[in-house]
Simulated scan of single mutants.
Amino acid sequence: DPGRGAEVVGKFATQHKTDIVFGTLFSHVVIGSAPAAGENKMPYFVVSEGHHVASTKLNRYVFQPGITDVKSQIQSMAPWIAANAGKKVTQIFPDFAFGYDHRDYLALKAQGGEVIAQIAIPPTESSFTKYFPQIPAETEVIYHVMVGPAVLTFVKELGEFYGSNRPQLFGFIDSLEATDINSPGLEFLDGSHFWEGSPRYAQANDSEAQKAYRTAVGIDDNGAAVGDPKDVSTAAHMFGCWETLYVVKKAMEDAGYKGSEDRAKLVEATEALTEFAEGPEHPQGPKTFNGKIHQCFGVQNISKVEGGKLKVVHKTKIEDGLYEAEGDYTTQAL
């Protein structure tokens, strides 16, 4: 609820007088809440992935320093999709801002591919079979990224629709985040590929920082809560919360932050950051930060479903996802 988001940001600023606001996931709520952050001069750190922050269409008080945005993610993975999955792609995505980023930024022409159909589905939808006949018969790859409470239903119904004779599948793990990929009805996913920000399953080459992070947040080698294998984590995204808090810590230290009267200093100190080394504070991997657009850039993982687990088969480079800035927040008044 974007309206509720703006109301909450306002209350944090005027009633609770917090130092910062930290949160929102859903991109349409970020967009709706951002004006309240700007009006109240409240630093607002989001972990949303949408391109809305980096587009410079929000304001100087909104940052996304702990997780990459969809535009960068797609740009860095498009060559792999065209080279390894197929050239004719049908997209299925949620019908709101996050989904529109996927719709707008998957560019395959340079790799000899094309998006032949785009199917937007309301995030509140509970059954999806009626949408699948819209998928063109010549589709070689179904690119899917669904979110919300019915994601498991979406994936199961997709499998029931195609049976064993399906196109290649390339999904964002959002479609199965917090869901056991060994759930009944998901067997057809074997051999398909997913984007992951941080891998759900422990990998043979995990860094010491990644191992320490997994221990600290209490997830096992399968990405489930230690002691409860049915409680599957949102491992692909939740590192962004961890890393963002360390960015805030670093910026507050650099600013000599004492209290809410130093919010403007905090904004400027955050904008002055340029890179985050891989390590305990940034276990997902190294990142660069563009203070003009308030957005970080990092590595992406492409994982294959094999034997009921997700195995990383390709890792992009930071430079694969870089793009030209569309504006400059630092020119705005504080």
Rank of each mutant, 00 (worst) to 15 (best):
D104P: 00
K287P: 01
A236M: 14
P94C: 05
N40C: 08
P133D: 03
F93E: 00
F96P: 01
T234Q: 13
D1Y: 10
A269D: 04
A117S: 09
L108C: 00
K249P: 07
V313N: 03
K87M: 02
Y105K: 02
T24A: 12
A333D: 12
T179W: 01
R263V: 07
P199V: 10
Y143D: 06
G50T: 15
G259M: 07
G112K: 02
N205F: 11
A97F: 00
V155C: 06
Q300N: 15
G113I: 01
Y213L: 05
M252H: 04
H314I: 04
E196G: 07
E177K: 10
S198D: 11
A107G: 03
R60P: 03
E160T: 13
C296Y: 00
P79T: 08
T330K: 11
A120D: 02
P136V: 03
M146G: 06
F26T: 12
P43Y: 09
E125R: 08
M146R: 01
M77S: 10
G23R: 06
C296L: 10
T215D: 13
A178M: 14
I293W: 01
P184D: 04
H51T: 13
E177R: 14
V313Y: 04
A255S: 11
D104E: 06
C296S: 12
Y323P: 05
V70F: 04
L310R: 14
E114C: 02
A85N: 04
G218Y: 02
P43S: 12
E324A: 15
A204C: 04
Y105T: 09
S126R: 12
F63E: 05
F63Y: 11
S126Q: 14
Q300G: 08
P280V: 09
T288D: 03
G38N: 06
A97L: 03
S260D: 10
I67D: 05
K249Q: 14
K17P: 01
N290R: 11
Q118W: 00
D220R: 08
A54T: 06
G227T: 02
Y61P: 01
M238K: 14
C296E: 08
N182E: 03
F132V: 05
Q73D: 12
I81R: 01
E177L: 12
P133N: 04
A251Y: 07
E271D: 05
G285S: 07
A6D: 00
I31V: 12
N301F: 07
Q91M: 15
G10D: 11
A333P: 01
G279Y: 09
K130Q: 15
D262A: 04
